[in-house]
Nucleic acid binder design. Sequence first.
DNA 1: TATATTAAGGATAAAATATGTCCCTAATTA
DNA 2: TAATTAGGGACATATTTTATCCTTAATATA
Lengths: 160, 160
Amino acid sequence: MILGNQVEWALHCMTTLARLPRDRYIPTKVLAEFHGVPKEYLSKAMQALASAGLVDGTLGPKGGYRIAKEANKISLLEIVEAVEGKKKTFNCQEIRFNNPCLKKEHKKKDSVCSIASAMFQADEAWRLVLRTRKLSDIVQDVTDSVPEEILKISDDWILS
Amino acid sequence: MILGNQVEWALHCMTTLARLPRDRYIPTKVLAEFHGVPKEYLSKAMQALASAGLVDGTLGPKGGYRIAKEANKISLLEIVEAVEGKKKTFNCQEIRFNNPCLKKEHKKKDSVCSIASAMFQADEAWRLVLRTRKLSDIVQDVTDSVPEEILKISDDWILS
DNA sequence: TATATTAAGGATAAAATATGTCCCTAATTA
DNA sequence: TAATTAGGGACATATTTTATCCTTAATATA
């Protein structure tokens, strides 16, 4: 069970956009080159972020994407779910009802079996961490840990 | 990012084996029919559980699998990892180092970027729930929630 | 001893998903 | 008018998941 690469791309692109001036649109082409990932495929992830309302895109020259909300209003979970979908990590197939000893009246689907319940708890614990962590936290971490000079030349590279 | 069905099968089979007398071996064929899953494929999951030391298998008539440890010594995480592997749910590709502004000396791989760090925290939260929950807890839940009569006829079906 | 049963595991194949590319359209800027 | 760009649809390739088949060696029992 491993997240697709698009999740990593989306998280980095969101962080990048969150660092830049809100009034500037950044084209997918630039985001792709900056992060060293295929432009066409990254474009799908950006579209997913746009349709989730996390970025907004605009057409034409000077077009591209910008952050649609403040970074402290965007959780990592929103980003992950925008790209990866909202399905739970455990897909209960209710195989307990395949028990050949059960009659129809016992196959009541109103309760969750304890195995699924435990797996859903684990899923929820994962989501809670991602829901709690905001994009602004990541931006802050980057600002604190990456040398100022590198941030500046990177921003200039993207905006030029 | 969704777990494979084998995880659900393995959890149910482990629960089943944990409920039965320790001195009896249950063949894959019986486990497969009881849970309504394909025998040959379930066999792969059972082999994974065996090689992780969670069950032990024996050959020949009266052969099959039995629990290898006490149920309170087996966590759900062990079962999940036996079948699904131990890789983390987030596979960091370090795309931050693809930044065209970076020179070689800046590409020090000794630190974890804050995005990966957050994703690993979420992964760890997921694992913690599964590590804490023991197979014996599941067995207890089943005993408490499934009517005694159904448990009895199911056990008889499996052991006969 | 002979036979049936079974785990272990290799080989293969089909199905589903992830990854990647190409191209067309409409909107927008210069 | 021309260049640029998001939005998407169609398609292609790679990888993973799911599943089946077969061989081998061990074991119980008749």
